[in-house]
């Protein structure tokens, strides 16, 4: 779901609801997350993990997260 061509503000499924973002922290380190709109990921610097957002649904599982350097 990284198709960025049709991204406007529309609320269709597939885009992260911004209100969800403020509801979330990293489940491992309990620190804030930053939203990477391009990669559709929620990044935890402290845990060095990027949690994927699939079809607008944040997958807040460390086992599904991508390790970042």
């Amino acid at each position: 779901m990284t198709d960025e061509s049709a991204l406007p503000e529309d609320r269709r499924r597939g885009r992260l609801d911004p209100r969800l973002l403020e509801l979330l922290i990293c489940p491992l380190t309990r620190t804030t997350l930053t939203y990477d709109a391009e990669k559709q990921e929620l990044v935890s610097r402290a845990a060095r993990l990027a949690y994927p957002i699939r079809d607008g649904i944040p997958i807040m599982l460390p086992s599904e997260a991508r390790e970042i350097e």
Binding site: D17, L20, L24, C26, P27, I57, I59, M60, L61
Partner: peptide
């Protein structure tokens, strides 16, 4: 809306 594990809530 979210996928979470109840053992480590976000």
């Amino acid at each position: 809306d979210l996928v979470v594990d109840e053992e480590a809530l976000p």
